[in-house]
């Protein structure tokens, strides 16, 4: 390499260096530390005792973790597909230049800026059987209130609805961005090709926003597999663990029971699961795309 090129290389590293350092310190180092801690019987205050893979063995045989895993999986399946579909439909409907569309875009995005505490507070008011909004509505129809937050059959759907309401904004924005990058003239060409609205949607719009769809699904899956705030604040993981999610369990084990080693092992398992799921999604979609010329 010539002197100038080498200098350029140095400058490049100097620009990227600070960020890489922070990234390594905040993400990579704790990841590796966590791996190490998970191989120990560790408590929150510094005691460590090497146990090898015993924490992982315990995790795989823990029925409470199994229940948390099932809950989390159910929640993710209940949230991600409807969220994607609804966000896409809303983005299609709001992808206009009218004033009303602009106002509605702001409205749908606004729930995202609320913190999880406010969101769960709002939904508690809506869902509680004691004079909550839904209960009052059911009462007006002459029906008994439904205990959304305390009946094992209803808690997971209740969490799903709360999360859906909260999370709509970001996927809508992503879809809007993707839709607006589709060149307008191919819709005109499709119109001249006699394509009806459903055909246009299925064969023009969807394939054009394929990558955006993938992004939304990947991000949301990773996010919903880690649901924590809604479960802790709305139902406390109850009743009887019916709405306990994996991250809530990790929180309880680490900060409630002080079993840091076990909690870290569960966290590593969760990390592996999220990694596997998102890579699988990526591979499934990208393998159909050919190289560009």
């Amino acid at each position: 390499m010539t002197g100038a090129a080498r200098r350029d290389g140095w400058v490049g590293y100097a620009f990227v260096g600070p960020f890489l350092l922070v990234y390594a310190a905040i993400l990579i180092v704790p990841l590796l530390m966590g791996l190490w801690i998970s191989l120990n019987n560790a408590d929150l205050f510094g005691r460590r005792e090497w146990v090898g893979l015993a924490n992982y063995a315990q995790a795989l045989g823990d029925p409470v973790l199994g229940q948390a895993f099932a809950n989390t999986l159910t929640l993710t399946l209940l949230i991600v597909p409807p969220l994607t579909v609804i966000a896409l439909l809303l983005a299609l409907a709001l992808n206009r230049a009218t004033r009303l569309a602009a106002i509605l875009r702001g409205v749908f995005f606004s729930s995202l800026v609320l913190s999880v505490t406010i969101v769960t507070l709002i939904w508690r008011f809506i869902l509680t059987p004691d004079a909550g909004l839904v209960a009052v509505g059911l009462g007006a129809l002459g029906r008994a209130p439904v205990p959304f937050l305390s009946d094992p059959a209803y808690v997971i759907p209740a969490l799903a609805v709360t999360t859906l309401w909260w999370s709509l904004g970001f996927p809508i924005m992503l879809f809007l961005a993707g839709l607006q990058q589709v060149p307008h003239d191919i819709y005109e060409a499709a119109a001249l090709d006699g394509a009806g609205r459903w055909t246009v949607f299925r064969r023009i719009t969807l394939p054009s926003i394929r990558r955006t769809l993938l992004l939304v699904v990947m991000l949301q899956t990773a996010a919903q597999l880690q649901i924590f705030g809604q479960a802790q604040l709305l139902t406390g993981g109850g009743p009887g663990g019916a709405s306990r999610t994996i991250v809530l369990y990790i929180f309880e084990v680490s900060f409630g029971r002080w079993e840091l080693g076990y909690a870290t092992a569960i966290a590593e398992l969760l990390f592996g699961m999220i990694l596997a799921v998102t890579l699988l999604q990526y591979w499934l979609v990208i393998r159909h795309e050919e190289q560009r010329a």
């Binding site: 305390s150 009743p239 009887g240």
Partner: peptide, 12 residues
């Protein structure tokens, strides 16, 4: 408390 809740509400 979690197990009691399950027992009392009849879930378990």
């Amino acid at each position: 408390g979690e197990e009691l809740e399950a027992a009392i509400t009849g879930t378990k």
